[in-house]
Amino acid sequence: MTKNEFLLRLSDALRKRHVPDYSDIVGEYEQHFAFKTADGFSEEEIAAKLGSPEDLAAQFEGGGEEKRQTGRKTVTLVGLVFSDIFAGFFFAFLFAWETVVAAFSVCSAVIGACLLAGRSPWALIPPLPFGCAVVFGISLAALAVFSAAGCVYFALFIRQLMRSYGRFHKNTLASASGGAVLPPLSAFPRLSPQANRRIRTVALAALTLFAVCFVLGIIVSMIAAGALEFWHAWGWFGYVPN
C-alpha cells in the first residue's frame, strides 16, 4: 500500500464512521509518513507498520457510546441542577456562619482594646475600675484570637468542601458523558501536621486565657465592688443603686 492509498482509505473509513475533524487525523498520519520517509523507510513498510486504516478508523470512533447514553445524561443533568441548588443554600448558610464568627471576633477585639485602653466610645462600656477593665480586656482579646482561629479553620473547611463538591459535580458530568473520572476529594481540609498543631495550640491557649481571665475578672470585680452582684453596685444595665 502506498502513502496515498493508505491516507485515502483512512479518510474514507473515518468519514463513514462520522468521526469529527477527520482531515486533522489524516494530517497526523501524513506527518508520520513524512518523518518515517526521512528515516529511510519505504511507503510500503511504513503503511504495513501503521496497521490497517479501517482498524485505525474504528479506534477513533467514540461517538456511538455517547449517543446511547443521552437519556441517562439528561436525568443526571436534572439531578445535578437540584443538587446544585441545595448545595448553594448550604454554602450560603456556611458563609453566613463564617461572617458571624468573623464579626464576633472583630467585636471582641475592639471591645478588648477599648477596655485595655480605658476608653468607652459613646459610653457603650459600663463604668468599672481600670484594674478590672484590664483583666476583662485581656479575656476579650483572647476570645478574639480564639474566634479568629476558628474563623480561619472554618474558612479552610468551606473552601475544601466547595472544591470537593466541585469535583463531585465534574465527575458526575464526566461519567454521564463517558469521560474521564478523577478521584474524589476529601471534604475536610488536609493541613500539614505543623499547621494543624499551630492552629490547635493557638486556639487552646486563647480559650484557656479567656476562661481564666473571665473568671478572674469577675472575682476581682466582686472584691472591688464589695458585692457579689457587682454590676448592681456599679449601676450597670440601667440599674440605679438605692
Partner: peptide, 16 residues
Amino acid sequence: ADGTVYPILRKLKSEG
C-alpha cells in the same frame, strides 16, 4: 502497530 498511538492521543484530548 505504529498507528495506534494517534487514536489514544485523540481520546486523551477529548477527555481534557
